[in-house]
């Protein structure tokens, strides 16, 4: 793995230390209507070569979490608390120029909508070469070489010609491959992939998933895969963090969490996935809507939609380790062993 010379990590990456450790992250937006706590005390860890699935309905704070890690939160938003430890170095404290050197280099991001992420008036080669040159001192020709190789790597045929094209000459799937190629240019140690396949059709989604997975396994890249689609993370992620209203409500290994979810919200998400329903059974939707972050219910934020809610839920449930390696923010979880459930 090529660590760039400009890297500023005081702690060397040892095999045991996680690539990323987010501790109690709080990112708030100071709007006219009030303070929107888009991310409110989120913690998780991603190890080298591991994939962390970050799931939740739209508006639960997944994208803002991703932007916080890359230092791309804009006015009126601000990281107001917590730590983002990248190989032990707190990114939340980094100067903008130091952060810029990490971005696109050791930490990359792939955005949700491939139709919007590439600049429409710049050719693909321009957009790739500038990324290479932003972080390494190579000639333009070498940069082009690297761009071409990476395009080939993500499965774009005749990359030499395609380099000279404009984004509108690509299909959505191809554009997302270009965006992925841009993210991979510097072989980053961490990739934040924000619903990168949501806008694509299922076949292309599957292809891209398989390829990204292979690339990450080869290079040891850690990945945060953001999605609202549980079927995607099931085959991809090692760990799962479920977000609701700016907080992690359940966190654990992907298989255990999907097979025996603890939190009623996770249960609801699983119930609304078609393939996981028994045939003939109607799809169960979580009743109600995502509450406005400006007007959350007191106590458990999921209370107004939760089938198990009781009086006690008017207090704030802590995120407790309810089973070994399994944490959930709920007073009355599902799937607890009999003696514990009593």
């Amino acid at each position: 793995m090529a660590a760039s010379p400009g890297a500023v990590s005081p702690v060397s990456a040892t095999a045991s230390s996680p690539t990323l450790e987010v501790r109690n992250l709080q990112t708030h937006f100071f709007t006219r209507a009030g303070v929107v706590k888009a991310v409110d005390g989120v913690s998780f860890t991603v190890g080298r070569g591991k994939v962390m699935g970050l799931v939740g309905e739209s508006g639960s704070g997944k994208t803002v979490t991703g932007f916080s890690i890359l230092g791309l939160v804009d006015e009126p938003g601000r990281i107001v608390g917590g730590e983002i430890l990248f190989h032990g170095q707190n990114l939340a404290r980094l100067k903008e120029e130091e952060m810029r050197q990490l971005r696109g280099n050791r930490i990359a991001m792939i955005f949700q909508d491939p139709m919007m992420t590439l600049n429409p008036v710049l050719r693909v080669d321009t957009q790739m070469i500038e990324t290479v040159l932003a972080h390494t001192k190579v000639s333009k020709e070498e940069a082009r070489q690297r761009a071409r190789d990476t395009l080939g790597m993500v499965g774009i045929p005749s990359p030499d010609e395609r380099l000279k094209s404009y984004p509108h000459q690509f299909s959505g799937g191809m554009r997302q491959r270009v965006a992925i190629a841009i993210a991979l240019l510097h072989r980053p140690e961490l990739i934040v992939a924000d619903e990168p396949t949501t806008a694509l059709d299922v076949t292309i989604q599957a292809q891209i998933l398989a390829e990204v997975q292979k690339l990450c396994a080869q290079t040891g890249t850690a990945m945060i895969w953001i999605t609202h689609d549980l079927t995607v993370v099931a085959g991809l992620a090692d760990e799962l963090a479920v977000m609701y209203a700016g907080r992690v409500v359940e966190h654990g290994p992907v298989n255990g969490t999907l097979d025996k979810p603890l939190h009623p919200y996770t249960m609801g998400l699983i119930g609304s996935v078609p393939s996981r329903n028994k045939r003939g059974e109607p799809l169960r939707q979580i009743p109600g809507m995502t509450p406005s972050l400006l007007n959350l219910p007191v106590g458990c934020a999921f209370r107004t939609r939760c089938p198990k809610a009781q009086d006690k839920c008017q207090q704030d449930p802590p995120l407790g380790e309810l089973l070994p390696g399994r944490r959930a923010r709920c007073f009355f979880p599902y799937n607890m062993p009999a003696e514990a459930a009593a």
């Binding site: 696109g104 990359a108 955005f111 919007m116 992420t117 590439l118 600049n119 972080h135 841009i182």
Partner: peptide, 13 residues
């Protein structure tokens, strides 16, 4: 626009 944010995410000056 997303492409400006993406340009920043690439670490451009």
């Amino acid at each position: 626009m997303d492409y400006v944010k993406f340009a920043r995410a690439k670490g451009l000056s």
